[in-house]
């Protein structure tokens, strides 16, 4: 399986390591022509959503990627990636890809001093490392979304069809179970495996 990392800005290298450890091949998307490469799934990494969203437009990658996601391309999104996918942001008129039926609040835990680590359950797997770094919160999501993780009474990971999104970073530790779950549960069925 070949997983593409949106490599415009952020911690795509950490995701790349996790997906390689989970047995996938990887490639990086930095330019429009990179979208012509064949891949079975897409990672939207952590970083700054303002930067990534702007570069998606300026590098003319926005429309083709949104189209591919709408057509069912499996997506694995963390933190800034979730913000890119969200249909609406709280107190912010910006909409990026807008393919996920969820309302998201940026920097919901405050500044870096509000960042925290939690070891929790994701998709039934215990002790998944979850780093919340200037993390967003999911305020609302469509009932069609499947909740995969919760913390402090809030949804922290959800799946809507081909899209998997989380407010935390599982990729900052060597644990690659979240990546493996995505490959097994979303990418493989999409490929008809």
């Amino acid at each position: 399986m070949k997983i593409a990392l949106l490599a415009l800005q952020g911690d795509f290298a950490e995701h790349e390591a996790a997906f390689r450890a989970a047995g996938a091949e990887t490639l990086q998307l930095r330019r429009k022509q990179d979208l012509d490469l064949a891949f079975d799934g897409l990672v939207l990494p952590g970083g700054e959503s303002t930067v990534q969203g702007k570069l998606l437009h300026e590098l003319e990658m926005f429309d083709p990627l949104r189209e591919r996601i709408r057509e069912g391309l499996p997506v694995f999104a963390t933190c800034a990636g979730l913000i890119l996918l969200a249909e609406r942001l709280m107190d912010d008129p910006t909409v990026h890809l807008g393919t996920l039926n969820a309302v998201v609040r940026r920097n919901a835990y405050g500044r870096q001093l509000g960042s925290f680590f939690h070891s929790g359950t994701f998709a039934g797997m215990e002790n998944i490392p979850m780093s919340f770094i200037r993390a967003p919160q999911i305020e609302f999501c469509s009932p069609a979304c499947q909740v995969l993780a919760e913390h402090g009474g809030r949804i922290t990971a959800l799946r809507q069809g081909n899209q998997l999104a989380m407010t935390f970073h599982p990729e900052l530790e060597t644990d690659c179970r979240a990546a493996a779950w995505f490959l097994r549960e979303i990418v493989s069925p999409c490929k008809g495996l």
Binding site: D11, G46, G47, R134
Partner: peptide
């Protein structure tokens, strides 16, 4: 981790 999020920026 926050520094890791700033990479490539």
């Amino acid at each position: 981790g926050l520094a890791q999020m700033l990479k490539g920026g």
